[in-house]
Design a protein around this nucleic acid. Structure first.
Lengths: 198, 198
DNA sequence: ATAAATATGTAACATATGTTACGGAGGTGA
DNA sequence: TCACCTCCGTAACATATGTTACATATTTAT
């Protein structure tokens, strides 16, 4: 759904900004006093670890909003760096306007609440993966969630490397465990899919 | 803040239920079609692992609402079991009433949005701990977050066991790492506190 | 079509964390 | 004061995961 198709809503996004690839839209700890809407591009919420590597906490794509968690919270500081990973076009709206729309505009209200909810549920989903006690159970939890989501036992994967990153494990560790699970008859897999057998 | 102090809001919570200790309020996968408010007691969102142990995904205390993530989401099924860990008194409100209040009642709207936001930020905070690559960094991230939250370098802990559980590691592993960190001059600790030195 | 870049599987090895066990410390109630 | 219980530190050992390296496979760019 594209929020800007609605004339009333579009008019309220009064500030338009462009960010080139790799620009930092917000730094960790910056104060959030408005919400943004991604017209074009992609933003990632990235935490930089002490050893220089980075972990992606969230991926935000076109037609998604951000700042929604922060703007109504007690603690309204960005928990990590918000980085534009493609050339991006963003529009902004301040808190007062947002609250006005929330009351007055059904479409905005629905969109806003659903975004907030979906993102929170995604965080919860991710937590459920991360708290698994070992890699096999992390993988199983991931596959289970995907199965429910797409209603198929054949789970498409972008790449093994991408999946390893998402599961927060080293790529060779993932390869090894997948091989073991295949040997145990739990799954089958190729370059593009993992299939649940059990 | 106690939502029920507001007469208009209290009247809308039309269903009142009592749950004894250990009762399951919602099972994993149950559909959510109303929001609940905890008048008295405590609920935990618990995921049962395959080996019979349990992981607490969220703790909900008095004057908190639940179901708020789910009711406006595409996927409105409970992601885990919601268990009453004390004798609890809960009141419920259906979705239509909730949407009405969201528009009409400033106090409710503020409370609702803030609850949603705070809970999502907590999930995000917890994620930031879990994605740390090793135990020492998990501990440091936890201490850092607590330091920001209470504005002190002396972090009170309920118990080592409780902390180990929260960090999702075995208790002796936590003990070992804390001892090493103390030896390295990063922290000091006793039974009740961990103090950040660096 | 070819070269370069990226993704993948696998193995050997290093390291971190889990498991189990046990004794001591401290709190609590009889 | 004593017995009991829970929490904690620690050690030895088992196991899981990370690290590094390298050979292939696949995709992308020229």
């Amino acid at each position: 759904m594209n929020l800007l198709n609605n004339e009333d809503i579009r008019k309220k996004f009064s500030l338009k900004c462009f960010y080139p690839k790799d620009a930092i839209v917000y730094h960790e700890n910056d104060i959030c006093d408005k919400i943004g809407y991604i017209v074009k591009g992609e933003l990632n919420l990235i935490h930089f670890t002490s050893d220089g590597s980075e972990r992606i906490l969230a991926r935000l794509k076109e037609n998604q909003i951000f700042g929604d968690f922060l703007i109504n919270s007690q603690n309204n500081r960005y928990p990590a760096n918000l980085v534009s990973v493609k050339d991006s076009e963003i529009v902004f709206m301040n808190k007062e306007t947002m609250n006005y729309l929330l009351i007055q505009n059904y479409e905005f209200r629905t969109f806003y609440l659903q975004e907030l909810s979906d993102k929170a549920l995604n965080l919860n989903k991710y937590n459920k993966i991360l708290i698994q006690p070992n890699l096999r159970e992390k993988i199983m939890m991931y596959l289970h969630q995907e199965k429910l989501s797409i209603n198929s036992k054949q789970i498409p994967i972008k790449s093994k490397e991408y999946l390893a990153n998402y599961l927060n494990v080293a790529r060779p560790s993932l390869s090894r465990e997948l091989a073991l699970m295949k040997k145990d008859g739990l799954i089958d897999y190729d370059r593009d899919y993992i299939t649940i057998l059990s």
